[in-house]
């Protein structure tokens, strides 16, 4: 719980330090990309801090490449 609060604080600092100047300079596109990414990162971090099981991207990779991997393993063994 404290972790999540800390993450939010850090994110708020990041946002004010980084996004507001972008907005002021009129870089709307940068601002949008930044905000979306930050939101994504924040939700991931908070999920992590609350010990929610996040699927590992490695699992997807392993799923996609499974036939190839198996083939490699069997031919080289």
């Amino acid at each position: 719980m404290w972790m999540s609060v800390l993450i939010v604080v850090v994110v708020v600092v990041m946002f004010t330090a980084e996004a507001i100047p972008l907005l002021k300079k009129g870089n709307i596109k940068e601002f949008r990309v930044f905000s979306v990414l930050l939101l994504f990162g924040t939700s991931l971090s908070i999920a992590l801090s609350l010990k929610v099981a996040i699927p590992s991207p490695i699992d997807w990779i392993e799923f996609i490449y499974k036939p190839l991997t198996d083939w490699l393993q069997t031919t080289l063994k």
Binding site: V10, V13, E18
Partner: peptide, 9 residues
């Protein structure tokens, strides 16, 4: 800004 953020960290 980098400095501020890294200091914070």
């Amino acid at each position: 800004r980098v400095m501020v953020i890294s200091c914070l960290f």
